[in-house]
Amino acid sequence: MKPEHNEKILLAGLAHNDREAVEKIYKENYGFIQALIINNNGSVDDARDVFQETMIVLFEKTRSGTLELNCQIRTYVYSVARRIWLKKLQQQSRFVGDLNLTETVVSVEEDLEDHLKRDSEFGMMEKAIQGLGEPCRGLLEAFYLRKRNMQEIASEFGYTNSENAKTQKYKCLMRLKKIFFKHYKNGTRDE
């Protein structure tokens, strides 16, 4: 019963992006995922990419409130990493077939579909923000991403008062929304 309890605490920590928990999960699972990738045509860099994407999937899952994994973290991570790597290999047409499995796997298709959708939304937002140009980009990042208040932002960016900074922020926000929703409604992040 004890390890299960520990895993729950770890997952709760992960949901809050608690560095200690993330580091522990990282440390305990990286090695055998790297072995999986390297034994199946991958490099150390591939292993890092696949593992970090897997961590993001796990993070998203705990964020969405579904803390119940119904299996050990190890099994879940292995299953997700396997699917991600298999897909990458197929995209690069380097390999078609199945991987040499050394562990049991669980079905993770739904979680990966969610992840794919979120990943594409992430890409759209990233692209929209990058397309803004300064000072809009910095202004919005300071307020919405770094959660600064308008007073701090006004002095950081050199506005005479926070009202002016706020007006500017809303103007930038309208531009960003326009760009983002254009892509979002098309359901694609490409032009």
């Binding site: 992006n17 560095r19 993330v22 580091e23 990282y26 440390k27 990286y30 890092r48 970090q52 961590m55 993001i56 993070f59 998203e60 964020r63 979120r118 939304e121 992430f122 937002m125 990233e126 923000i129 919405y144 991403l145 959660k147 929304k177 983002f180 929703f181 979002y184």
Partner: peptide, 26 residues
């Protein structure tokens, strides 16, 4: 919806950069 997207973006971005620094530390 938009603010949700922004929040999620901020969280994911923070998590991603955290992962990279954990990786380097380890």
């Amino acid at each position: 919806l938009f603010l949700q997207q922004m929040n999620r973006f901020a969280e994911t971005q923070e998590f991603k950069s955290g992962l990279q620094s954990i990786h380097n530390d380890l």
